[in-house]
Design a protein around this nucleic acid. Sequence first.
DNA 1: CCCATATGAGACACGAACGTCCCACTCCGC
DNA 2: GCGGAGTGGGACGTTCGTGTCTCATATGGG
Lengths: 183, 183
Amino acid sequence: MTLDREQVLRSAAALLTRKSTATMDEVARAAGIGRATLHRHFAGRDALVGALEDLGIREFEAALDSAALDDGAAEEGLRRLIAAVEPSAGLLSFLVTENQLFEGDDVNEGWSRLDARVSAFFRRGQERGEFRIDLTPAWLTEALYGLIGSCAWSVQTGRVAAQDFPYMIVELLLGGARRSVEK
Amino acid sequence: MTLDREQVLRSAAALLTRKSTATMDEVARAAGIGRATLHRHFAGRDALVGALEDLGIREFEAALDSAALDDGAAEEGLRRLIAAVEPSAGLLSFLVTENQLFEGDDVNEGWSRLDARVSAFFRRGQERGEFRIDLTPAWLTEALYGLIGSCAWSVQTGRVAAQDFPYMIVELLLGGARRSVEK
DNA sequence: CCCATATGAGACACGAACGTCCCACTCCGC
DNA sequence: GCGGAGTGGGACGTTCGTGTCTCATATGGG
């Protein structure tokens, strides 16, 4: 008994990553519990998505912390970040898509905090001459999210090998963001 | 009278780009027509999305044609493609997202045809030594779609100036795909 | 062993969106 | 001016997901 809330969230994340329109019933069955029990722990779909948001924010924040973005070259920091964020990629891309559906009323303030950290990282990289200055930090941040989502999707559909996930993202994003010599 | 089917599709695309969950009623009002009339021209939501798919495929295909990808350097071809695809960016990113919701049963064959063209373009660029060979054509194709979507979204939320749309995408994607000298 | 707590299954009402239909109105061609 | 086609508004039934509730069952601690 005594349901493992964390495990339910994990399976919900795994399911919603694949099928973002999954029913509460499907979420419950995927977690191996009854729909009633699911409702007992999460007031409704909004509450469930909210809990997933908190989870995703925590994971992303942890990845940011563990990446120690400011240690050494910015390029290496970014590589560590991508590697650290890989396990959460599916969940994060689901949450990004979910957020886009909102009418911008009440967005979880956690996202703005994370956006600010990522954006600030790119800006520092620019100031240190490691990143191109003609691509704005805000755009690099959004592009990072987009590439994470695209790559997670490509892995899911078999277009990209799972083991290549970090490499594909880092090489594509970094190649563009890195100051190249002929510029 | 005699409803302009094309115009209805345009306004539906514009609305669904911003709010992909918009109701048939909202779509109708956005087009300035009644819900009944909308249903007379499109059997249902599926038919409407299907018509939008055809429209998006036509536009993307036209962009591919007009870009003349094989004329001159691959880089220039890509620049022309991005510029040509800009007006359709919102619609295309909506359709890509929409397609991901499908359980992969019956996808419009148009997409595979377009995927093949884009993918082949990247492959030729690789063979001619203009693109890196460690990033697969399939991934470059998906990344292109993802960046188009991210940039369209960034423009909509004001994070990226509309006039910078082609530049931001091309520079980021190309920088990564382009063989850089220090490699 | 017994009881409290949590669960699963199902029933129920509610709301949203859909798809269909009808009716009055308007606009156009004849 | 007249008739018909096209349109808008609204009503209706249906479906689907949601949220709440009840009840029987199982599990685990005292």
